[in-house]
Design a protein around this nucleic acid. Structure first.
Lengths: 125, 125
DNA sequence: CCTTGACCTGGAGTCAACTCCAGGTGTTAG
DNA sequence: CTAACACCTGGAGTTGACTCCAGGTCAAGG
């Protein structure tokens, strides 16, 4: 798969894909004889993972660290688990915050529905 | 309430509080005779609201627009409701994404627990 | 052969949201 | 009276995560 196809399939710009590779978030993708990236299954897997994590706001730096540990093999399993657990905790907290905000929004929206109703009633008086 | 107290109570830096005022997110706070901000109940209410919305990632620009409409009085109720509904929709979508990521993290963490168990078993062979 | 189009690189630019700073003022404690 | 402090302002700097660009390579079609 060439970079453009990956970009379209996962809705990540080609610039961003190359950027991820530059900063070491994705290990170097293999190239064909003329230097063009050929994304293999393993690269796609990584991209899917990164897309998911990034969409939830996990920082790139943490992901770089995690993926670095993955590359280093089995002796890093414990450290990797700790990173994921930490991020899971932070993410759960953020979701809770957002849920609270969602509730407040619903409350306010309901208030406005009400205000509109009252206004309409008044105009019928 | 002076700026420092507000800052401590709501965990927002004094710089950020002044910044919010500068960009028009908070309407100008009244000052005492020597030019120092004296936050009134209404200001505090606004800050609480903003803190909640910002913690969920609502963009400052949208909040400025919303608060501007609030200042303009009742004829903007419909527009305000629409803004909140739009933001509610976006927020719900983000929460859903994050929930998916949370599930994936749980799945991966469980995988690592497993890996550790296997390793321990092996070492007892 | 030459143009077109997808790809390449390194580096600079952008954006949102702060955060920091220098230089200055007013109030209070010793 | 003066030193320490919390406050003020306008403007510059920072951070994270892209995004854009100039200038160049290469393969394929007309």
């Amino acid at each position: 798969m060439k970079i453009m196809e990956v970009s379209e399939q996962y809705e990540i710009s080609t610039d961003t894909l190359r950027y991820y590779e530059r900063i070491g978030l994705i290990p170097p993708v293999n190239r064909n004889k003329s230097g063009i990236r050929e994304y293999a299954a393993i690269d796609i897997q990584r991209i899917e993972f990164i897309k998911c994590m990034r969409s939830a706001g996990l920082p790139i730096e943490v992901l770089i660290e995690y993926i670095g540990l993955v590359q280093q093999g089995d002796q890093t399993i414990h450290a990797r688990k700790e990173i994921l657990k930490e991020q899971r905790k932070l993410l759960a907290a953020r979701i809770k915050e957002m849920q609270k905000t969602l509730d407040l929004l619903d409350y306010k929206i309901a208030g406005y529905e009400n205000a509109v109703l009252k206004k309409e009633k008044k105009s019928f008086k």
